[in-house]
Design a protein around this nucleic acid. Structure first.
Lengths: 139, 139
DNA sequence: CATAGACATAGACCTAACTTTAGGTTTAGG
DNA sequence: CCTAAACCTAAAGTTAGGTCTATGTCTATG
């Protein structure tokens, strides 16, 4: 596995510039370069990218991902910090999911609402007959 | 219900400037002002804000929210567009939730991993013995 | 062995969604 | 009636996370 930046960009569906930006920010530790300066993404670099993508999806900022990557480089000293970070991430994700589910609920109400309205050809009747669940969530 | 901007900001946990910005962008249709230019948020304005917050949480941009708000002002002509928008939002939310769940999975693996590592006092053993589920998702 | 296509760097630019600033007006309470 | 707190506008500034540009070097292939 000795990928060039273009190949990796394609695999991860990231812009080449984004990969260079991540490298500049220090998110890809020990990224090799050949004699003429061309980046070679080995297995370690690729698994860093996998972690980066996942942490990004979990809502972490680039800066905090960088902190994590640095901890990984520092070795066993930082195991506790890393565990705590993942515990916090888990919490964050769980509440994000809950919030999205409640948002989905509102959206589903709206789908129902507008399905009826489209059938009727007007919003009038639906407006009067459908009780709105919004207030349960938001007020 | 005749709220000033400060009261509404507190209720929705938004910055006052954010509310003025939403108003400027046309997200709060028919927002009343008194003789001296002070905004008065009536029930209609508040329910616009409820919708805005929800659509924001579903990942919609301000610009797209504005489009929706405009459709609402245009009346029954745009019922179909609105229904289609909510159907698309529902899709988007559902796949967002799925993605977060799969991310949570990875995070949970990491929690296990680091819990063991912290117990051991080192990453060495865990690194060798725990199979990594990352590749299932990402390669 | 020429050359198109992929790579490099530094630094400027972009976008969304606010947030802050400057300078001024309104209003509620003691 | 004074004044602090809350409101106003217009416009500049901020932040994150890229993305693009200019300019130049490398390299794979016909």
């Amino acid at each position: 596995m000795r990928n060039t930046i273009g190949e990796v960009a394609k695999k991860f569906n990231l812009n080449i510039s984004t990969l260079r930006y991540y490298d500049k920010e220090g998110l890809i530790p020990n990224l090799e370069k050949n004699e003429s300066g061309i980046r070679i993404f080995d297995e370690e670099a690729v698994s860093a990218l996998i972690a980066i993508e996942c942490l990004k999806k979990s809502g972490m900022s680039i800066k905090d991902i960088k902190t994590f990557i640095d901890w990984c480089q520092e070795g066993d000293e930082t195991l506790k910090e890393r565990l705590e970070m993942f515990l916090a991430r888990r919490e964050a994700l769980q509440s994000q999911i809950k919030e999205l589910e409640s948002t989905l609920n509102y959206i589903e109400y709206k789908v129902e609402y507008y399905t009826k309205a489209v059938t009727d050809g007007t919003e009038k009747m639906v407006k009067e007959t459908m009780s709105n669940p919004r207030l349960l969530n938001l007020q």
